[in-house]
Design a protein around this nucleic acid. Structure first.
Length: 328
DNA sequence: AAAATTGGCAACCGCATCTCA
DNA sequence: TTGAGATGCGGTTGCCAATTT
C-alpha cells in the first residue's frame, strides 16, 4: 500500500518519499490518485451504492471499481464505522456503559471483541468512549486507568451505580408499560420469573434483558436466586456475592461454575455479570452507604446518562471506607 | 469579546494475522 | 511451503465545536 500521510499526520516524511505532489482540494488532501481526510457525501453515496450492488469485501478492488480515490482500508473503515446501516449512533446508554466496563475489566483493550457484544457499536466508538470518558476519571483520580485502585473504584462504585440507575429507569418504564405487559415478547426479561435456559445467557443478554430491550434473539434468561442478607455476606465457591446496594434480586446470576478461559465466558454463560459487580468480602455490608452518598450528591439524579455517576468526593469517600474496612 | 483549553470523534497509521495462489 | 496481498486491530493524531478563562 502506498504510504502517504494526510493532513492529519504530523509526519510528513513519508509523503515526501512519494513522487506525487499534494494538492488541497475541497480541504481534502489528494496525493496522486488517492484522497484523504473527511469523506464527502458524494463519496459516501458511491460507497453505499457500490456495496448495495456488489456487497462488501475485497476493499482495494472495491475502492477502484467504485471509482473511489481512496485506499481499500479507508473504504472499509468508512463503511464499518459510519455507513453500515446497522451502526448505532448517539449517546452510549447506561446499559452499554455497564457492558463496556464489564467487558473491559475482563478483556482489556480488546475493542473489537467488546464491540461484538454491543450490537451496532463499533470498536472505534467504544475505544473513543473509553479514552474520553473513563480515562478522564482516572486522570481526575490521578491514578492509572489500569491500576487496581481505579479498577476497584470502577467495579465497586461506578458499576453498581450504573445498575441502580438502569433499574430505576426500568422501574419507571415498567410503571408506564405495566398495563400493556402482554405486548412484551417472551424473550424479554421479567422480574420475579424463574426462567430456564440452562444458564446459557451471557451478560450482554442480561443487560439487554434488564434494559427491557425486546425483539432480539437472546432467548430467555435464567434467573436463579434472589439477594438475601445471608447470601450477600457469604460467597459461593467462587467468592461471588451480590451487592445489596444494587439490589440485584432477580436480575443477575449467581454463578455456579467457573470457566477459567475468558474467551469462553459468554459462550459458556456460566458466569454472569454479577461476578464483576459483586463486593469483596461482603464489602457492601460493611458500612459503605452509597445511598447516603447519593443523597449528598443531588447531581446524581440529574438525568444525565453519560458519565456523571460519581465524582471525586464520592471516590475519596469510597476509597477511605474501603481501606478502613479492609484494614489497609 | 477574544484567546486558550478541553472534549469528542473521524480517520489515519503500523503491525499482526489471514487467505490464497 | 511460501510470499504477496487483503483484512483486522489497537494506538494515535488532529480537526472542530464547546467550554472556560
Amino acid at each position: 500500500m502506498m504510504d502517504v500521510k494526510g493532513r492529519n499526520s504530523k509526519n510528513s516524511s513519508s509523503s515526501s518519499s512519494t513522487t506525487q505532489t499534494c494538492d488541497y482540494q475541497d480541504e481534502i488532501m489528494v496525493v496522486g490518485d488517492l484522497r484523504r481526510g473527511p469523506w464527502t457525501v458524494e463519496e459516501d453515496l458511491k460507497l453505499i451504492n457500490y456495496i448495495a450492488t456488489h456487497g462488501e469485501g475485497r476493499w482495494n478492488s472495491l475502492a477502484r471499481s467504485a471509482g473511489l480515490k481512496r485506499t481499500g482500508k479507508s473504504c472499509r473503515l468508512r463503511w464499518l464505522n459510519y455507513l453500515r446501516p446497522d451502526v448505532r449512533r448517539g449517546n452510549i446508554t447506561l446499559q452499554e456503559q455497564l457492558m463496556i466496563l464489564e467487558l473491559h475489566s475482563r478483556w482489556g483493550n480488546r475493542w473489537s471483541k467488546i464491540a461484538q457484544h454491543l450490537p451496532g457499536r463499533t470498536d472505534n466508538e467504544i475505544k473513543n468512549y473509553w479514552r474520553t470518558r473513563v480515562q478522564k476519571h482516572a486522570k481526575q483520580l490521578k491514578c492509572d486507568v489500569n491500576s487496581k485502585q481505579f479498577k476497584d473504584t470502577m467495579r465497586y462504585l461506578w458499576m453498581p451505580r450504573l445498575i441502580e440507575r438502569i433499574q430505576a429507569a426500568n422501574a419507571a418504564t415498567n410503571a408506564v408499560t405495566s398495563t400493556n405487559v402482554s405486548t412484551v415478547p417472551n424473550s424479554s426479561f421479567t422480574p420475579n420469573h424463574h426462567l430456564t435456559n440452562n444458564m446459557d445467557m451471557g451478560s450482554e443478554h442480561l443487560v439487554m434483558a434488564q434494559a427491557g430491550i425486546t425483539g432480539n434473539d437472546y432467548g430467555v434468561a435464567h434467573v436463579t436466586t434472589s439477594y438475601t442478607p445471608e447470601n450477600s455476606s457469604t460467597s459461593d465457591s467462587f467468592g461471588t456475592q451480590v451487592s445489596p446496594v444494587s439490589d440485584l434480586t432477580n436480575e443477575y446470576y449467581i454463578p455456579v461454575n467457573h470457566n477459567p478461559n475468558p474467551d469462553n465466558y459468554f459462550q459458556a454463560g456460566q458466569i454472569g455479570l454479577s461476578e464483576s459487580i459483586t463486593s469483596p468480602s461482603g464489602y457492601f455490608n460493611q458500612g459503605l452507604d452509597l445511598h447516603s452518598m447519593e443523597q449528598n450528591n443531588p447531581w446524581l439524579h440529574s438525568g444525565d446518562t453519560s458519565d456523571n455517576l460519581w465524582n471525586v468526593e464520592d471516590i475519596c469517600l469510597f476509597q477511605q471506607q474501603f481501606c478502613n474496612n479492609n484494614n489497609i
